[in-house]
C-alpha cells in the first residue's frame, strides 16, 4: 500500500494529466480542485477513472463528489486502499 507521500505524487501526476495546463508545483493540498484549479465535471470524471486504473480504487460517485481537495483525496485513499 502506498504511503501518503506516494499517494500525493501519484495523484498530482494524474491531476496534471487530466489538466495539462496545471503544473505539479502549483497544486497545494488544501486548494479546491474545482474552484481553484477550474476542474470541470469532465475532468473529475477523468480523474476518478484514472484513480481507478492506477490505484485500483473504485471510488463511488457519491463519495467522489465530496472529495474537493488533494488532501481529502489522499485521506480517503488511505482509508480505502485497493
Amino acid at each position: 500500500m502506498m504511503n501518503r507521500d506516494e499517494l500525493r505524487t501519484a495523484l498530482i501526476e494524474e491531476i496534471t494529466r487530466v489538466a495539462p495546463d496545471l503544473s505539479a508545483d502549483e497544486i497545494t493540498e488544501e486548494a479546491s480542485l474545482r474552484d481553484d484549479y477550474d476542474l470541470d465535471s469532465m475532468d473529475s470524471f477523468n480523474l476518478a477513472s484514472a484513480i481507478h486504473k492506477r490505484l485500483g480504487v473504485n471510488i463511488p460517485e457519491t463519495d467522489f463528489a465530496r472529495l474537493q481537495s488533494l488532501a481529502q483525496l489522499m485521506t480517503y485513499l488511505e482509508k480505502h486502499p485497493a
Partner: peptide, 14 residues
C-alpha cells in the same frame, strides 16, 4: 445508473 458502474463507465448529466 452510476452507482452500479466503475468510474470510467459512469455518465455525466451533460
Amino acid at each position: 445508473y452510476n452507482a452500479d458502474q466503475p468510474p470510467e463507465k459512469r455518465l455525466l448529466m451533460s
